[in-house]
Design a protein around this nucleic acid. Sequence first.
DNA 1: TCTGGAAGTTACAGACCGGTAACACCCTAG
DNA 2: CTAGGGTGTTACCGGTCTGTAACTTCCAGA
Lengths: 196, 196
Amino acid sequence: MTDGVVERSRPRDRILETARDMFHKHGIKGVGVDAITEAAGTNKMTLYRHFESKDDLIVECLRANAAKAGAMWEAFEAEFPGDKLAQLHAWVRKAAAMLNADGRGCDMANAAAELTEPDHPARRVIKELKEAQRERLVGLCRDAGIGQAELLADTLSLLFEGARVSVQTVGTEGPSTQFVRMAEGLIVSFRGTAAG
Amino acid sequence: MTDGVVERSRPRDRILETARDMFHKHGIKGVGVDAITEAAGTNKMTLYRHFESKDDLIVECLRANAAKAGAMWEAFEAEFPGDKLAQLHAWVRKAAAMLNADGRGCDMANAAAELTEPDHPARRVIKELKEAQRERLVGLCRDAGIGQAELLADTLSLLFEGARVSVQTVGTEGPSTQFVRMAEGLIVSFRGTAAG
DNA sequence: TCTGGAAGTTACAGACCGGTAACACCCTAG
DNA sequence: CTAGGGTGTTACCGGTCTGTAACTTCCAGA
């Protein structure tokens, strides 16, 4: 049984998954390690055997989130192999779906809002992962043949980030309802300037 | 001396101002009432004589922020009386300046990220104040003679919100550097469609 | 000068926080 | 059967949190 990569329900995995869920729902400082271990069906000692500290657990949760996001990009490539423009539209649809998923914003952004210490270990990984996501979106726009790929990618990125916080503050009935229209309009507009 | 509206350095005002500053810098759950009162040069009992609870203090801080934001809009009107388009451009400049002011995002959005309880008293005031701000921006766009005023206002709003969280996650050198270009381009674009 | 209210001080309650020590328990590999 | 590592259990440490009680000090207004 040592070959299994899954080996599900090992305590460490349960802790990581439970922490991700609870941090997402209640915020990082709103959840204690006791609550996490209890919800994960284990205990505090086991948590501290697998993670150096709560901060370490936070960082691992953020990395797990990033890994899940990375899988999303690969799913786009798998669904529309080579068709970067179709993948870009898939990203827009996926982003819109995330807006209506729940009222909580981006875990990275929320973590950045809570962990204010400038040298907190989570801050560097947040920056790294956000920059990596930007690279992927820029690459998608560029390979889709769009002229000002960086500007379009940054605009779409800011729109999406803004929509997520808008959902968190005024709910799903606010400005975020127009996200798809805005994004699609921008893509059309940028494709037009690329040709001209 | 009862006529004075200022009467500065009254304990309640010092507490409110200090709490606003500390909540902004360190987050709401990252600051205790002891730290606030000490920084305000007073004590905990005085705080609880003026505010029912920490939650009440939080709500008052958010309202104070909104009042300050309201003063900003009035400053636009005072600087460019009647010229709504000039006021819209002033808003863009002001928003850009706020991006470079400090690495912390919008206090409302940060509070919404931290206070996850759905019935937290701060949530309703956050929603009210964000909706009020949207109304002002929509009104500015409409009175500036722009056709799809709501769509432009929502797009600018999401861009600004996104830029603020972007600053918080990747810093001032990220996508937010393009905010002014994006916003001005959008205004030009929307003014074009209004005429056409 | 007297008085009343606002503000300061100290101490405390009760709960929760992150983190650790010591020990008992399985369960599997040899 | 045995040994050992991963796990569970209990108790605890020192600190911090919100909120309160009881008391003192100050200061402005009459």
